[in-house]
Write a protein that binds this DNA or RNA. Sequence first.
DNA 1: GTCTATAAATGGATAGAC
DNA 2: GTCTATCCATTTATAGAC
Lengths: 209, 209
Amino acid sequence: MARNTRQRILDASLALFNAQGEPNVTTNHIADELEISPGNLYYHFRNKEDIIEHLFVGYEERIDAAMQMPEGRLPNLEDIWLQLHLAFECVSDYRFLYRDLVDILSRSRKLRLHFARILKRGREGITDVIRGLVQAGVMRASAAEAEATATNILLTITFWLNYAAVRGDRDENRMIRQGIQQVMMLIAPLLRDAERLHLHHLSEAYEAQ
Amino acid sequence: MARNTRQRILDASLALFNAQGEPNVTTNHIADELEISPGNLYYHFRNKEDIIEHLFVGYEERIDAAMQMPEGRLPNLEDIWLQLHLAFECVSDYRFLYRDLVDILSRSRKLRLHFARILKRGREGITDVIRGLVQAGVMRASAAEAEATATNILLTITFWLNYAAVRGDRDENRMIRQGIQQVMMLIAPLLRDAERLHLHHLSEAYEAQ
DNA sequence: GTCTATAAATGGATAGAC
DNA sequence: GTCTATCCATTTATAGAC
């Protein structure tokens, strides 16, 4: 049952962190939720930070997977849509991390380094896609505009859920859909007419679901 | 000296919150910093939340002032630059609020309502400017693009400092300059050629300072 | 207005029995 | 592996003297 309890602690912690915010969840809350003793929890993890670090490992795997672009060919608009979906859903599943991002990272040099690396990889992936679209003639953007757009997309993915939360939005799925639409609208002005039209069709279809 | 100590507590709190993050600053830290007793601090404020709420009042005045657009005429690019500067500097001066935004707002219905109102007003102000530029023929954007751009600018102003912090940026002034440039690059693709050129000239001059 | 002293509560963490 | 009991440190907050 060791593996089991350990995993249950991680699952319950993630759920509680996401629901109430990491600063508002104590190790006692987690133990209570699972109906185990605090001592038992501390048998499996050194401390709360240790739990967070293990959750982060799962997050990092998820986000790395979500950042994998189709190899050997240029992504089309549908591909991009899918990638955004994967990214936003990962962010959503680990939203506790983003909710108090600066504070959580400030406590751990390790997480700080890993997150910086994730941002860097995300930035590179997005930049590659944009450059590819420009070269394929689908998109028109100066080098500076391409850079700014990449930054902008990353910023939106990273903080969209916080923005939605602060505005008072509660509906999880709606938040994600709006985030994706927001990113798509950012790149729309850079697209050639045909693709721009295509994008708006996709957007309407998506909105209707 | 009552007024004096009260104000010193607010000043010291703001400085400490900004430097270390609000969750990491206790009322004892604040009292220590001022070399007054905790009891004295609690004579002037009911609790930590009370201090935050009073700081928020100052913030709200600042941000409201920063959102005032020139009346009776269309803003030009230089106006927009100035507005962004005022906005980013206000955000920077009260960055503790943005650093742990979701958590701080989650604790106080009052702050939540006020902040939602600020976002709403900001959104309206930005939308007005964009619409004005479109009508003046300076900018080209569909209604949906204009909406998305307004949202995007607001998102950037709100979370740029966090993004910079997470990337490991320390230089305060550099962060602000980059934030402004980032916003300007967002609207560049929507501008007519002449204004776009003008913007890039402004941008280069700004970068060189 | 300000201080000292201290209460009251919480949260993190450990020792030792089972 | 798990529990009970408990300790320690921190933080908030108040009472009462000056």
